[in-house]
Simulated assay, not measured.
Amino acid sequence: MPTPIPANARNPLRTFRFRIRMNTSAAGQYVAGVRTVSGLSVHVSPFEVWEGGNNLHRYAQPHKVNWEPIVMEQGLALDDTLERWALAVLEFARTGKAPGEAVKRDVFIDLWDGFAHPTEVPAPGPEARIRSFYVHNAWVSKYHALPKLDAMAGEVALLSLELTHEGWEPVPKPPASKPASPA
């Protein structure tokens, strides 16, 4: 007989539990209100070689790596961290001088364990984090300050950013601490 699953069981396969952390200081800060993150993918192009005199068989080796841009959406009325970053990049492109804000930043995408109720907040410790991705030297390459405005639609106003970066890598999860054994 199959074991029944409790109604409040955690589901680690949910995709709506994530946070964006940016390393602008020694301890990263979380960005509030990020709704979607997409484009964490990579494409490796082959380098094809034919053996001398043999045009029937080709040998392919991994060659060029193309990191796809990451697209983020955030509610306009929540946190202005991403907007200030986009404006700093625009200022740098316009004047050639780095403003007070960093233009290239390291970004961490943290995925958290799925909780039973949508209002539950994941614990801040590394135990609840399923996986993290470290995005190297990201900068804002496309910035949509306002969405299409329509008075007849019941949509939420979202700021949209496209981040160009120098690659990403998964961050190894720290080993789980063992519970204390009873003496």
Rank of each mutant, 00 (worst) to 15 (best):
S181A: 13
W139L: 05
K64V: 08
L159P: 02
S160Y: 00
P118D: 07
W85S: 13
G33V: 10
E101K: 09
T36V: 02
D150H: 10
S41R: 10
P118M: 06
N137F: 06
I109M: 00
P175T: 07
M22K: 01
I5G: 04
K142W: 04
S181I: 08
P182R: 07
E73F: 01
L159F: 00
V121G: 02
P46A: 15
N23E: 14
G39N: 06
G52C: 14
F108K: 01
S160M: 10
D150G: 04
E166T: 01
P174I: 00
K142I: 03
R14S: 05
A88R: 11
V171P: 01
F115D: 07
R10I: 00
A88E: 12
I70F: 02
T81I: 04
D150P: 09
S141W: 02
R94V: 09
P170L: 05
Y143T: 09
K173L: 06
L149R: 06
A180N: 12
F115R: 09
M22L: 13
R84I: 01
V37A: 04
G75E: 11
E155V: 10
E166V: 03
E73Y: 02
A9F: 07
G75V: 13
G125F: 03
G100Y: 01
M1G: 14
A60C: 13
E162V: 06
R94Q: 10
T36R: 04
P99S: 10
A7K: 13
K142T: 11
P118K: 04
Q61G: 01
L163H: 01
Y59K: 14
D113E: 13
K104C: 14
A123C: 07
L90W: 06
R84S: 14
R35A: 05
G52L: 15
A180G: 11
E166P: 00
V34F: 03
P118A: 08
A32M: 05
W50Q: 15
R129M: 09
L90E: 09
P6M: 11
H136S: 08
H144T: 14
D110S: 07
S45I: 01
P170V: 06
T36I: 03
P122L: 06
V44H: 11
A26K: 02
P126I: 03
S25F: 10
E120L: 04
A26H: 06
E169L: 12
F115H: 05
A32D: 08
V135D: 07
A128Y: 05
R105F: 00
V49P: 07
V89G: 05
R129F: 00
E101Y: 10
D110H: 00
A98G: 08
P69G: 05
L90Q: 15
G53Y: 12
R21P: 01
T95I: 12
T81L: 07
A102K: 13
V89K: 02
K178T: 13
K142M: 13
V140I: 14
G28T: 07
D113G: 08
E120D: 09
F16T: 13
Y134A: 04
N11G: 02
L82D: 05
R21F: 06
S41H: 10
L78C: 11
S41F: 05
A60G: 14
V37W: 03
F108C: 00
